[in-house]
Amino acid sequence: MSAHTPLFEVRDLRVAFGPGGILGEAVRGISLHVDHGEVLGIVGESGSGKSVGMLAALGLQPEGARVSGSVRFKGRELVGLPRRDLRELRGSRIGMIFQDPLSSLNPVMTVGDQIAEAVRLHNRDMSRKAALDRAKDLLALVSIPQPDRRLQQYPHEFSGGMRQRVMIAMAVANDPDLLIADEPTTALDVTVQAQIMDVLADLKQRLKIGLILITHDLGVLAGHADRVAVIYAGQVVEQAGVDDLFARPGHPYTRGLIASIPDMTRMDDRLFSIEGTPPALGHLPSGCAFNPRCTVAQDVCRHLAPQTHVEGDHNATCHFAFQNVVSAA
């Protein structure tokens, strides 16, 4: 790596639960980075630690969780930063949107007040009126019609897609450098999903932000991400440019994820699925964490944790990374 400082860089991030980490680690040393104007996709099953990890990076870990490792934003270390300083970054330099826009919005506050709050939290001198004007512009920015009228409405008066647009408007209220979108389309209809992805892509272009797109659906990333990090059981198992990843997946888990993307041209086929479930917190198998579900696992996988194999910008953590092992699937 050169002297260039990435916008957002996570190194060996760990999140442990229970006193002294006794319940186990949900995030076991994640390292990744994203730059201005770049989209990093983070993909993994639910419970893989992808959301917990990104929340913890911003100091939003669940109560009782212990965070270690390094998180640098524009070169500044965030782990161990006082809560007050973290608060100043959140919502101003770093925006976040979440999976379910209905439960993510306060039901008893108007949409205008919620956006204006995001604005005023980081512009203390701004009047309520000016903040509401800004909120109106933000609604227009995410293509919500009749922003004037919409400002005075409550979240329950919006449709799912419109609510997610509100969340996005709120997240970019202060022109952030980084936007973290945690499953932004999962709770939405398929047609609306595409619209929301377009809004995000458009904002990335216009505001030149770095975007971290967390999803369990590799298909969502195909047209939208520049690079992809695949997470399994709290670790990055493969990281590559998006085209490279699809063309030459180096990890059997990634191959499984690609195979399980529904192919609309072959309706008769049964959908491929990876057998089994990810390990529960604190119940990791020995050797490679993926070995009980892996179709190409050998003896060594059950005893020895794999090394990371690097090929250019592409890396995979598997004993048989980049080897074209014929799988049973």
């Binding site: 929340l55 911003l58 939003l60 608060r87 100043e88 970054l89 959140r90 919502g91 101003s92 925006g95 976040m96 979440f98 379910d100 439960s103 993510s104 919005l105 306060n106 039901p107 008893v108 506050m109 709050e117 995001a118 939290l121 980081h122 969340m167 709120m170 997240a171």
Partner: peptide
């Protein structure tokens, strides 16, 4: 609830989160 996480993600302080977002609900 999740909107409490949203409030924290906006950069709201704990007092504001508890009184303005939680208590009102």
């Amino acid at each position: 609830r999740e909107f409490i996480l949203t409030a924290r993600a906006k950069g709201a302080g704990e007092f504001r989160v508890v009184i303005r977002h939680a208590l009102r609900n």
